[in-house]
Simulated scan of single mutants.
Amino acid sequence: MQVSNLQAGYGGTPIIDELTTSIPEGKITTIIGSNGCGKSTLLKACTRLLSPESGGVALDGRSITQMPTKELAKTLAILPQTQQGAGGLTVYELVSYGRFPHQRGFGRLTRTDKEKIAWAMEMTGTTDFADQPVDGLSGGQRQRVWIAMALAQDTEMIFLDEPTTYLDMAHQLEVLELLQRLNREEGRTIVMVLHDLNQAARFSDHIIAMKEGEIVHAGSSKEVIQCDILRHVFEIEAIIGEDPMTGCPMCMTYHLLQQKQTAPLKQAVNN
């Protein structure tokens, strides 16, 4: 996927402007940056949830704006930051919605549909509660069900906006290990937004660091999780070490830059 000179925003206010980047095929790409820097906007533009003001996004050389909706839905799936209520649906019923782009006529599930649903539920460990209502599941279980629905869509690319939000540490790890397994074993291209730098470093092949709608740096975790880059992107002073379990870079500790720490105090004194 290639993003070229992209300008996108809301209500006429641009959030990202003249942004150009690429998403490597068959890899896990994570977008990092402070709140409001344009991470989710980029994700939405890449999945056609948001129309660009100018520039565009191409998939295998074709503009996604020119692709029929069902064709695009067979190529990429997105799990937004906030999912809509399941409305009393069972786990199986919700996962089956992922087959909609492949259905014809009255939308009856075919043999292939049922096989894909069963595979998606097996991959995500949701088979045992197929008949349970989604609303009655724990946060981690619900997240796995939504991922199962995206898997049932049977796409080459899966986009996720903060998939670990509101989950405890164990469930965060569970979701990220699942995504890593999908990438390694199934060859799926994963693109996600994460706030945790150590999770991004551990689970990503490619990281895009953003600030104020622009890309500051893109590359491997070792290339991006660097003191000077984190200083620029987050305005923090960090100590970077090596994760003894994975060998990935690890943010050991950090603090706000001195000028950022003292600015509110100076303002209060002046007032």
Rank of each mutant, 00 (worst) to 15 (best):
L167S: 08
S34M: 07
K211W: 03
I78R: 06
T126Y: 02
K39Q: 10
A73V: 01
Q267G: 00
N183W: 05
Q7I: 09
V91E: 07
T155E: 07
D168Y: 04
L230H: 02
Q143P: 02
M1H: 10
A268Y: 11
E18T: 08
D243L: 02
K44H: 13
G55A: 09
L167W: 05
Y254C: 13
D60Q: 14
G140L: 04
G87C: 11
T30N: 03
F100W: 09
A45C: 05
L182P: 03
A200T: 04
N35G: 08
S96I: 09
H255F: 10
T246M: 08
Y166Q: 10
T65W: 06
H255C: 09
P80N: 12
T75P: 00
G38Q: 03
I117P: 01
N270Q: 15
S40K: 06
Q7A: 11
R104Q: 14
G98P: 03
R48C: 02
Y97P: 00
L42Q: 08
N35W: 08
L257G: 12
K211E: 05
A58H: 14
L151D: 05
T155G: 10
H232W: 00
M123R: 13
D128I: 03
S22D: 13
S96C: 09
I16D: 01
R181L: 10
A152G: 13
L151T: 07
C227F: 02
S96H: 06
R48F: 03
S63C: 11
G125H: 05
S54H: 04
E71G: 07
I190D: 01
M1A: 12
S4N: 12
M252T: 02
D131S: 14
T127C: 02
S51M: 12
P80D: 11
L257F: 01
M250F: 15
G213I: 06
I207W: 01
E174F: 00
I236E: 05
G61P: 06
F106K: 12
L137C: 11
L79H: 02
D131M: 12
Y97R: 15
Q226I: 07
D161H: 04
M245Y: 09
L42E: 00
L59A: 03
G213S: 07
G136D: 12
M192H: 00
L178Y: 06
W119G: 03
F234C: 08
A150P: 01
L265W: 09
M192S: 14
Q267P: 00
T164H: 03
R184W: 00
A218Q: 13
G88V: 10
D168R: 10
D196T: 06
P24L: 09
D60E: 15
S63Y: 09
L137G: 11
Y10W: 05
N271I: 11
I208T: 03
C248Q: 15
Q83N: 15
C37T: 13
M121T: 06
L19I: 06
G26D: 08
G125E: 08
S40Q: 07
Y97Q: 14
S63F: 08
A209R: 04
T246R: 01
R142F: 10
G140W: 00
V216A: 10
G55F: 06
E71L: 12
L76R: 14
E122K: 12
L79M: 14
A218V: 01
T126W: 04
M169T: 07
H206F: 11
T164G: 07
G136N: 14
C46E: 06
T29R: 00
D243I: 04
